[in-house]
Design a protein around this nucleic acid. Structure first.
Lengths: 349, 349
DNA sequence: AACCATAATTGGAACGTTCCAATTTGGTCA
DNA sequence: TGACCAAATTGGAACGTTCCAATTATGGTT
């Protein structure tokens, strides 16, 4: 077991050069003669040399660690897994490696994870923050000049870049779609009203309702947990509203599925009796029955963009916060059924 | 921007002790006086000290890097995402941090990723190998005495530990369930026949068929891509078999969903006209229509077990390969319908 | 032959920590 | 008092790399 690590000095000795030359080869410097380079490379292969990044980081500026931290609030959720995959794609091909951790929406864990990553000398961080994350949580990083990109959920007041989807525009499009099918009483269902994402989506709802004519009725805004169970529970309240709505735009797909559950539990068939629009376009949206009309946000693309932005900042050496809003797209499937006819009656298309 | 890093020496100077003492505090040594410890800790907080693990690793044995490598063949797949989450849970609470990378079933990428992790000095590796991974791919790690745990898919010949699910037993239970519902012609559908997992599941099929009576008919084994599309395509072949089968055990849930698609495309209703059993129990299995009867394997639990095993080996300092087979459980839902009646006829339960 | 520019190589210090062996401190005992 | 002990502290070498300044080799000009 006396297997000592093979170091740059061993290589130097075996190749008959100095350690400095070996180091230059390692860095692909053009200063070294081609013949020398070849010999050194050969010796490295032969002795099974493995580069010690830790030692290198000690000497170089910390931003060259080639480690990107990625923290995600819920990896179990397909949406965030896709995000991580998108990040990994660009990070890997840039020769970086990804430190990924899951916080499960736990702020304490998130703090620990960030601290740990700092100790390991990450050159940048991409974070989809846990609920309740504050600017102070990111402060140590940005204070140390480490680039940070916040994804999906914004953290107000943070001096960091962000990549979020166009929440306002997405819900706007969903409402307009419902309106074009003839719906006049459209509810907005699910989501915690104290989050930034909720505020943005609600803004889209308000703007669209205003733009489409029907008067805005605050009663039609029914908040609740952004989960399947939350949706099922919320729809009960929706159906008890006087002048009952005929359609709903949901906070996300999970809520939308819950709404469908709740409708069926009350003898109503989604699509036929009540139109439903989701948000996110999770994988199940396509295969559910009825297939869900929803707003597609391409999480993998967001991950890629976030990573590109981060790498740009790392290479630039200076942090110039930038906010990217990722465009979204309405995907029409089956959950809104066919156009409805109002009392005036109109020709079918 | 002249923000020099705060080092252990700065702390020492400010606290009026030597750097050695500070180091001892850092390591929670009992050698240092409580008063001293308190003062040093206070100064560290005050100056905003952050530990430099890179420097520490340089000095200590490599196995103390507190980094665990995790490589996964497809993070997009909920199964593997759950696995990674399970690993992260135990790894995090042991004070380690997780290097996670996605290979997308690409062997070259897998090699790169493993090499990169080695350079970073991981103290252990958990890998769900890409298709076609050979023992040689893991050799450098195990050769260097770095503990490796192979998960989900086995790599034959590798001198590494493994955590795989009980594939044989799972399919065995699925077939027996179908037989108990009265099915006599049961197909085995999907999966590439050159993989170890396929071989194990097929063995369960063979054993169960034998144990249950009906003669084994090789024609009923229909292999193919382990995906939804593969399942849809395979079911066509299944339905064209003379003396048509009435049920199928599928290689995994994706194939099972594909089989359902294919059945419907031919005017057959899954559950009612043809019984389907999956394998994996992915999240959608519960909510699909019909809800899928399948073999549950608890990927998160596997991840946890894999991580525990790895940590044990890291702490032990010696690699004593160990093979864990994770037990599985048949989850009966709706996709097998009700018992069928053979020509003899029998009383309903 | 002396000089210079360029290309290639090199020794040594530095990075921030840990660990070993050595030293200091303060108390106890003969 | 001096010898001894345990507890607490310490200086310096070491880890494997990079970087700087310095050196040597190579060939071309005057």
């Amino acid at each position: 077991m006396s297997k000592r690590r093979v170091t740059v000095i061993d290589i130097a000795r075996a190749a008959g050069v100095s350690k400095s030359t070996v180091s230059l080869v390692l860095q692909g410097s053009s200063l070294v003669n081609d013949g020398t380079r070849a010999k050194v490379s050969a010796v490295m292969r032969e002795l099974g040399y493995v580069y010690n990044r830790g030692a290198a980081n000690l000497r170089q500026s910390a931003s060259k660690s080639k480690i990107i931290g990625v923290v995600v609030n819920d990896l179990t959720n397909g949406f965030f897994a896709e995000l991580a995959v998108g990040v990994d794609m660009v990070v890997q091909s840039a020769g970086f490696v990804q430190f990924l951790s899951n916080t499960s929406e736990n702020l304490d864990r998130q703090r620990e994870v960030i601290a740990s990553m700092r100790e390991h000398g990450i050159s940048g961080l991409i974070i989809s923050p846990a609920r309740g994350t504050e600017a102070a949580d990111l402060k140590p990083l940005v204070g140390a000049g480490i680039p940070v990109v916040v994804a999906v959920r914004n953290v107000s007041g943070a001096k960091a870049s962000s990549v979020i989807s166009d929440n306002r525009e997405g819900v706007f499009a969903g409402v307009k779609h419902l309106a074009s099918l003839g719906h006049r009483r459209i509810a907005f269902v699910g989501g915690f009203s104290d989050t930034a994402v909720f505020a943005e989506r609600l803004e889209g709802y308000r703007d669209a309702i205003e733009a489409c004519g029907p008067p805005l009725d605050e009663e039609l805004i029914v908040s609740g947990p952004p989960s399947r169970a939350g949706g099922a529970e919320a729809v009960a309240r929706v159906l008890s509203i006087a002048d009952r709505p005929t359609a709903a735009v949901c906070f996300n797909d999970a809520v939308a599925f819950g709404v469908c559950d709740g409708l069926r539990a009350r003898g109503l068939e989604p699509a036929r009796d009540f139109a439903v629009v989701g948000f996110d376009d999770v994988i199940e949206a396509k295969t559910a029955v009825p297939a869900l009309t929803t707003i597609s946000v391409d999480p993998q693309g967001m991950g890629r963009r976030a990573a590109q932005l981060l790498l740009k900042q790392i290479n630039a050496g200076k942090v110039e916060p930038e906010a990217i809003v990722s465009s979204v797209r309405l995907v029409v499937r089956e959950s809104c059924g066919r156009p409805i006819h109002d009392t005036i009656g109109r020709k079918e298309a």
